[in-house]
Every structure is written in C-alpha cells, then in structure tokens.
Design a protein around this nucleic acid. Structure first.
Length: 505
RNA sequence: CGGAGCGUAGCACAGCUUGGUAGUGCGCCUGGUUUGGGACCAGGAGGUCGCAGGUUCAAAUCCUGUCGCUCCGACCA
C-alpha cells in the first residue's frame, strides 16, 4: 500500500465531518459504544478531560467555589416546577420507571417493581440542587452558596456526534445562590470570564463573549452568557455558558430567606457549565490533516521520547539516555507546571510509533539513538511543523529550550486560530450580502463557506426565525464589545448593536 | 418521525445481478531478516455472513418480516 500523503483521510477540505471522526479514531480519543449516542472515552481522550478538570477546578476554587455532589436521579415532579425549564428539556429526558428485573414467561428479563413516581436522569441539576438549597438557606447569613459539581448528565439527543453532542456527557455545573440580583449578575459574568480565560490561555482558543438572544436562552434563565468559538469549517461552537437565573428557580424550589430588613425574600441563583464538548471544539479548531494538534498547556504529554534501538548492544545505553532526558525535562517547568514527558519503549517499528504520536498531537517528539549517544545530541520534531522536519540539538541545550518552544507553540496556535477567525468574520450591512455569505456555491455537496457575520439586528425574534429557516444560521451572541447602534438590514428598523450570526454545532 | 445508504473476521471491504466448500487488505500470533521516512519474507490463529421466518436437494446470495448503524432532514442551553 502506498503511503498516503496525509495521515488522515479524507482531508478537512474534502469532507470535514468525516475528517473529524477520523481524527478522533486516529488519535485514539474515543469511540462510539453499543448504546446509541454514548461514547467510550479512551485514555488519551480522558487525559485531555483530566487536564481540563484540573485546570478549571483550580480556577473555580480560586474564585471561592467548593465541590459537592448531588443525585443522578431527579423526581419527575421537580422538573415540572419551572415552566420554561420543563418545556426546554422534556423532549430529551431519559426516565426511570422500574427498579427491578424479573424473568418473563419466555425467560427474558422484564422490568418490574414500578416506581410510584418516575425518576428523570438529570439533564442538568438546577431543580434538585435548588431543592437542597431551599433546605440550607434560612437567613441572608447563609448566602452566598458557591458550589460546583463534576458530573455526568443525559440528554436524549436525536443526532449525536462524538464529544460535540452525546446522549451522556461529562461536565461541571456551578450552582450559586445570592442575596441580591447584582451579586448574581456579577457571579454570572465572573464565571464567563473564567471560561474565556481558560479557552484563551489553555486551549489556545479565541472566543467571542456575549449574551444569547431570547430564543437561544437557557430554559428558565433571565440571561444566558456564552463563549463561542469558530472551528475550521467556519461554524460556531458554543463552548461554555453562564446563566443568570434571577429568582425563577428560587421561586420554583422555594429558596427563601429572612433578609437584613427582616423581610422574607427569594434568593437569586446562577448556573454555569462546560462539558466534554470542549474536547470536540479543541479537535475541530486546531487539528490538521495529519491528526490531532494539542496546545501544550492542555496536552496530557508535552514531550514524547522515542528510543531508537537498532542494535542489541546499544539498547540499554539508549534507554538509559532516554530516562535521563525524561528526568531532566520533568525537573523543569512550563507555564507553572512540571513538564509532562512520556517515553515510548514499546516494541514497535520506529516510523509507526512516530506517526502514532503525530496523530495524537503531542507537541514535541524526541528521537534518541546510538548516533546521538556518540555525539551527545537529540533529534527533535514539532507538531506544528512538517512531520519530516527535524532539528538536532545538544541534549543539555534542548532541555533548557523546551519551555520556550512549548510557549512559542502555545502562542502560535492561538494566533493561528485568531487569524482564521478574523479572516472569516465579516461586517455585513445588506440582506443580499448576508444571504450570499451563507449560501454555498455547490448546494448538493456544500463546500466550507461562510463564517461569522457581524450584522445589525432590530431585536425581532421573527427575523431570527426566518433566517434560521432560510439558511440554518442563528445568532450566536450579542457581543459585549460592539460599535454602537445602526440599522437592521432585514427590517430597516433601528438596531441597538451588531450581533454575531453563524451556522453552529 | 420522514428520505437515502449500509449490516460478511478486531478494522476496512469484496462476493449477491446468474443460489453450489467463506474471500481480500490491514491488524493480531510465531520464526527470521530489518529498524533515525508509516518494514519485508515465511508460517499461523480468527466467521452462527445482524436476527427470525420462507422458497430450495442446497441460501451470504432469492422472498417476507424485524432489529441496528451511518448520512441528510426534523429536533437540539
């Protein structure tokens, strides 16, 4: 079989959705399971999630939050308490109705022992956490409550996609309760800023920050803030959300307290979350036609050392040199953390191992063989350069340089993603240009097209609805930063600000 | 829930039109030769052809039903 020109086929340009799935398979991140919509997250994929968890968890603690854990099952009646919330989630709930299995007449197991009240597998935990907070809060002195939980949730999605939309997914959900509306608002904005910083500094992802329009708002929220990323097919991914729930859930759950004025009042609550969808976003944003590309700060391993052991008599010496280099690197820091190193000692063909690590997206590869032992050098390669492009360093010099190489790669990835987004973001002021921007040249097999349109909008939901029906384009957010009022090109009415429109996942 | 396609070895697929011993490539195992640009040679293991019924001397192949998956829609903080 002739060696393919790229490790991943098809390429991004040939078939983006298929490329995405191939990258996940080639990088060994995850696979579909026997249960539709559910995925098995493999060690390399889970390693990414662990890195995200560790980092975000630290940031949550720094902003005053603690972790706790609430039940997987929610009494059906809880979900009914908030009207908009039911409507938003009712169509995608897994429901538990029985608690036992019995052998039927044909010997097959049948559900038995019907529950008096069906239980919903949490699609999100506002209601059950709200019920707990209602028990915990009596006085303004009990506030604020600042809690986060790391959990799995289930939403029975019609069309799942690995990481981006799965029936079960892992996430964190922060739930806070406050004395005043202003505090809740501040909390919502503070956590969105945490997400923005995490995306930028760790995932090398530039994200838009802003507010959702009413039609895209979280069911039951007064205000939904979001970060939105652009990925390489120019679509938008909602990468994180932060909701100001006002008093809606407090009233539904009965979170009330006696205030400083000796009056009973309802608390103001917020919720905010990011999920394993971030992994899908990361893949779609940075990877190339040779597989995954990982920003160093989130990579489970930042350097992989590949021993080259062609001859038995030098094998031990080579492996020892690899151990020494690993120890040397691990004693150094990049971005405030010890450098993460792996040595791949598996009994496999060298070229095959190299390509495996390219596909897994490890930032730096190092080969050490007998020739290096003789000359005191190492042969290195970077994931952001061509696979064959290799640089030889003196071993000691290399170890010193690794932190700056990683820093440079991290920055390059961010700048590349930012340049990509800017190249595909357009200020549009006419309906014609807007429609042309989002219409592919080949409707039968649409090429990668469009991007973010920065366009005025009068605020009428009917306009959103029409555009969604015509083009499958929605408002991604009303950005915090904008250039002031103007005219809506769809209605001719005044518009308070430009908003971002895009096709989305 | 509608439209299209697909279910054959761990993976990717051929074989089906015209019924007749279950195939190919990759991967896996063993031995040898190799190894800094995805190795090569030889031998080997691995299958209730999604499931159920029907036609037939004989079904992966034809017929009926059924289940599942993928893609496109509908749906989706």
């Amino acid at each position: 079989m002739p060696a393919p020109t790229t490790a991943i086929q098809p390429t991004r340009h040939e078939d983006f959705p298929e490329w995405y799935q191939q990258v996940i398979a080639a990088a060994d991140l995850a696979e579909n399971s026997e249960v539709r919509g559910c995925m098995v997250i493999k060690p390399w994929g889970f390693g990414l999630w662990e890195r995200m968890q560790q980092t975000l968890d630290r940031m949550f603690k720094q902003t005053g939050h603690e972790n706790a854990y609430f039940p997987l099952f929610i009494p059906l009646s809880y979900l009914e308490k908030e009207a908009a919330h039911v409507e938003g989630f009712a169509k995608e709930c897994a429901v538990v109705t029985h608690h036992r299995l019995e052998a039927g007449p044909d010997g097959k197991l049948m559900p038995a022992g019907e529950l008096t009240e069906p239980l919903v597998v949490r699609p999100t935990s506002e209601t059950i956490i709200g019920a707990a907070y209602a028990r915990w809060v009596q006085s303004y002195r009990d506030l604020p409550i600042l809690i986060n939980q790391w959990a799995n949730v289930v939403r029975w999605e019609m069309r799942p996609r690995l990481f981006l939309r799965t029936a079960e997914f892992l996430w964190q959900e922060g739930h806070t309760a406050h004395e005043t509306a202003a505090e809740a608002r501040e909390e919502t904005e503070r956590m969105l800023a945490v997400y923005e910083r995490f995306a930028r500094e760790f995932l090398a992802l530039p994200v838009l920050t802003g507010e959702k329009s009413e039609s895209e708002r979280f069911p039951g929220a007064d205000r939904t803030l979001c970060i939105e990323a652009m990925v390489q097919d120019r679509k938008a991914v909602q990468a994180g959300t932060s909701h100001d729930l006002g008093q809606n859930f407090a009233k539904a759950a009965g979170i009330k307290f006696l205030g400083r004025d000796n009056q009973e009042a309802f608390a103001y609550t917020t919720s905010w979350g990011v999920s394993t969808r971030l992994i899908g976003t990361l893949v779609m944003a940075h990877s190339d036609d040779d597989g995954l590309v990982l920003p160093p700060r989130i990579a489970p391993a930042q350097v992989v050392i590949l021993p080259v052991t062609p001859k038995e008599d030098t094998r031990t010496a080579v492996l020892e040199a690899c151990d020494r280099l690993a120890a040397e690197l691990e004693s150094r820091e990049f971005a405030g953390e010890r450098i993460r190193v792996r040595i791949d000692k598996r009994d496999r063909q060298g070229g095959a191992k190299t390509w495996e690590w390219i596909k897994k997206g490890v930032p730096i590869r190092v080969e050490i063989g007998p020739r290096d032992l003789a000359s005191g050098t190492v042969l290195t390669a970077r994931r952001d350069l061509a696979p064959k492009e290799k640089t030889s360093y003196a071993a000691t010099e290399f170890a010193e340089k690794v932190p700056s190489i990683l820093a440079e790669m991290q920055e390059n990835l961010y700048q590349r993603a930012l340049a990509f987004r800017e190249a595909h973001t357009r200020k549009i002021d006419t309906r014609e240009e807007f429609y042309a921007f989002f219409t592919p040249a080949r409707p039968d097999k649409p090429e990668i097209h469009g991007g973010f349109a920065w366009t005025h909008w009068c605020g009428d939901p009917a306009v959103e609805e029409q555009i969604k029906a015509d083009l499958k384009v929605t408002i991604r957010c009303l950005p915090f930063e904008h250039d002031g009022p103007g005219t809506c090109p769809f209605t001719g009415k005044p518009s308070p600000q430009r908003v971002f429109w895009a096709k989305s996942y």
